[in-house]
Amino acid sequence: MKEEVLFTIDTPYRPALQVRAWRFGDPGQKSLAVMGSLRGNEIQQMYICGQLIQALKAAESSHQLSPECGILVIPCANQFSMNVGRRFWAADNTDINRMFPGYDQGETTQRIAADIFQALQGYTYGVHLTSFYLPGDHLPHVRMMDTGYQHIEEAAAFGLPYIVLRTPRAYDTTTLNYNWQIWNTQAFSLYSTSTDCIDEDAARLAVGSILRFLAVKGLLHRQYFPAAGEPRILRESTLHNILSHAGGLMLCRRHPGDAVEKEELLGEILNPCTGQVLESLRSDCRGRVFFCRRSQLVNGHEVAFRILPASDFQ
């Protein structure tokens, strides 16, 4: 294991930002790169990287890494926002994961993205531990961009039950996942259940899935358990969005993984002052809860739940 400072960025009113990385295996090989937190509230993603570093350290010391294996792990590239409790870059509220491939003469977040992307280029596989644009919890899954360069069958090596294929929109073209694909890295976005709080069980699942991927690809000499079944491949567009129509306090009655029937109660929106039920949120189909919004203050016309229809998981 080797720890290094990838680059340093000056920040206003605070010490310079040092982005650190940990390398394992042959430094001349570029097998797998793992990117953790790019946003200031991605605590779970940073924690997963820390646990992965410990697991890889143990594997390297016991000579389980293949001689052809070279791994790079970057746990966090946005300590500045994390320290002040902001999701995006605290100085101008920009999102680093909307700045790739970056511009080394641009604004701060553009320069951070450029330095990160330079460090991550050339790897055969890339895993981004990322978060959804809405605050909430997911079923664990692997997501890939449908760029035309992806090999979706590669994602089965993680052993997770769901593989989600996303058709990129214009704003997706500046994400790490998209640009990795365009620059010939097989990129996967790995979604854990939570974002701004630590879920140890979900973290163990995420670390185990990455180690399983390495083992399947012959980069880690370790036996792995066969997957419980074939992963279910689905397009993100097949998920049913359940929108709020009233604003207020939201109480969830169902959670990710729960099977639901059509018209079953998913949650309620209450008047913040009187406690009166303003809206009952119900499933529009038989299926399984894939995403649940966790912020208990919700506005009108926001995604509160996402349902995976029964036809897509049976």
Rank of each mutant, 00 (worst) to 15 (best):
193 T>W: 00
138 H>T: 09
199 D>V: 01
146 D>V: 12
201 D>V: 02
146 D>L: 15
170 A>G: 14
141 H>V: 06
194 S>Y: 03
162 Y>K: 08
177 N>H: 04
148 G>C: 11
196 D>K: 10
153 E>Q: 13
169 R>K: 14
157 A>S: 14
144 M>D: 06
185 T>L: 02
186 Q>S: 12
200 E>W: 00
191 Y>D: 13
203 A>E: 00
179 N>Q: 07
127 V>I: 15
148 G>L: 06
166 R>V: 08
144 M>H: 07
143 R>P: 06
121 Q>C: 09
152 I>E: 06
122 G>V: 04
135 P>A: 00
183 W>H: 15
188 F>N: 05
166 R>E: 15
122 G>A: 10
140 P>A: 12
175 T>C: 07
182 I>H: 08
152 I>N: 13
188 F>H: 13
152 I>P: 14
160 L>S: 07
187 A>I: 06
161 P>A: 11
187 A>M: 02
203 A>F: 02
201 D>W: 02
120 L>Q: 02
180 W>M: 14
120 L>V: 10
141 H>L: 08
167 T>V: 06
165 L>S: 09
150 Q>I: 08
148 G>R: 11
183 W>E: 09
152 I>T: 15
187 A>V: 06
143 R>S: 10
139 L>R: 08
134 L>R: 15
176 L>I: 09
141 H>D: 03
121 Q>L: 07
159 G>S: 02
167 T>R: 12
194 S>C: 09
149 Y>E: 10
201 D>Q: 06
194 S>E: 06
142 V>Q: 01
145 M>P: 04
139 L>N: 11
147 T>D: 07
175 T>Q: 03
186 Q>M: 07
124 T>C: 02
